[in-house]
Design a protein around this nucleic acid. Structure first.
Length: 371
DNA sequence: AATGTGTGCAACCGCCCTACC
DNA sequence: GGGTAGGGCGGTTGCACACAT
């Protein structure tokens, strides 16, 4: 049995709000407030509207200091950066833009900003088509890929490249596979060597996105089962790693975590890599940064906290670890996540963790790293 | 002028989370 | 602890308008 509707659907008005309805709602709330009960509100005012509809109307249009349209370049950049970082969490994004509502930003993104930003890619692809180029990227099929692409564009812009998308065609800036995993892959696939460029990953593994999805569930399982003291947010692991990091140089190592007892191993694997490994005959995209995170004994990576590249984009570099909680309530204080499941981890060395539709982690380090 | 197509956006739907009983 | 109601949220729909054919 489904749950009861919040209001009598047959007797509520739907569709656009009239000026009279707006006036009634606005006047009442300004005088008496919402009373903490939206469902009861329309009856009190004499509006034939669903309480949820009243709430939406108030929050999106009637409450004071709401801005509509006219997004500035700065707001565009903020939206873009946050979208790359945390995906379509519009309410969180809206919280960073005073006067903007989540609905407004969502509409703006879907109808305009995305097209504006991806427009160049379309041109690029069309040009490649004309020129018969074979290096065309697959069409965007997930938010992870979309965000990866946007990130690359941003990098290109920052580097002053005329065509930021040329970054896609430059293997040296793309992540490297961890050597052990590379070896495994070569063995498993009878390959002589691995071309680990994203293009090749995508071409070799058409279900690229499935890898990511699977990777997510593995990470989740690892996280949930990892330790009885673990509250599911990765806090315990995070604390361990922070402790480990205190004793080590941030810049020369990553940390591996034993998959049995969840303890930090000291046999750390040095370097920044994107890993691709097998688990239960499924390939998983995995990754690690030099900041904190690592591979467990099965080769599975545990992503922990990374410095946010957004720090640099939005307010200057900051090399301190700052942790925000699962709900990003501390987002104004830094751009860190310690949550294995939220997967919004960035570091100052241009690593980026992408997130797909189902909270999947995919970490790239596009620096030509030398351990 | 009529019709088709694209675009922007307000509003709705349905799911999830949480507070409360 | 379990059930329920309300709030919050992201995804989607549908309408109005603009522009193209």
């Amino acid at each position: 049995m489904g749950r009861a509707p919040c209001c009598d659907k047959a007797n509520v008005k739907k569709g656009p709000w009239s000026p009279e309805e707006d006036t009634k709602l606005k006047a009442y709330i300004e005088k008496y407030g919402t009373g903490g009960n939206w469902i009861a509100l329309p009856q009190k005012i004499g509006l034939k509207r669903c309480g949820k509809s009243c709430r939406l109307r108030w929050l999106n249009y009637l409450r004071p200091n709401i801005k509509h349209g006219g997004f500035t370049e700065e707001e565009d950049n903020t939206i873009l950066s946050l979208y790359i970082s945390i995906g379509s969490r519009w309410s969180i994004i809206a919280a960073q833009l005073p006067g903007r509502t989540d609905n407004d930003i969502k509409n703006y993104w879907n109808t305009r900003l995305k097209k504006k930003l991806l427009g160049r890619r379309k041109q690029h692809q069309q040009q490649n088509c004309v020129n018969g180029s074979k290096d065309e990227l697959p069409s965007l099929s997930s938010s992870a890929l979309e965000r990866l692409q946007l990130h690359m564009q941003l990098q290109g812009q920052q580097q002053g490249l005329q065509n930021p998308l040329s970054l896609f065609n430059n293997p040296t800036i793309w992540p490297k596979l961890h050597p052990l995993i590379q070896e495994k892959l070569i063995q498993n696939n009878n390959l002589q060597s691995i071309d680990n460029s994203p293009q090749m990953m995508i071409q070799q593994y058409p279900n690229f996105v499935d890898f990511i999805h699977h990777s997510s569930s593995v990470l989740d399982n690892n996280n949930n089962n990892s330790n009885s003291n673990n509250n599911g947010t990765g806090m315990l692991i995070k604390e361990q790693v922070d402790q480990e990091l205190e004793n080590s140089s941030l810049n020369d190592r990553s940390t591996s975590i034993d998959d049995d007892d969840n303890k930090i191993n000291n046999d750390t694997i040095v370097g920044n890599y994107v890993g691709l490994t097998n688990n239960n005959s499924n390939n998983n995209i995995i990754g690690v940064s030099k900041a904190s995170g690592g591979y467990d004994s099965t080769g599975m990576q545990r992503v922990l906290s990374f410095q946010a590249e957004l720090n640099e984009l939005l307010g200057g570099a900051n090399n301190d670890h700052k942790v925000i909680n699962h709900d990003f309530e501390g987002i104004n204080n830094g751009w860190w996540s310690n949550d294995l499941n939220s997967n919004t981890c960035w570091d100052a060395n241009s690593s980026v963790v992408l997130q797909s539709e189902d909270d999947t982690t995919m970490l790239y380090d596009h620096q030509d790293y030398v351990a």
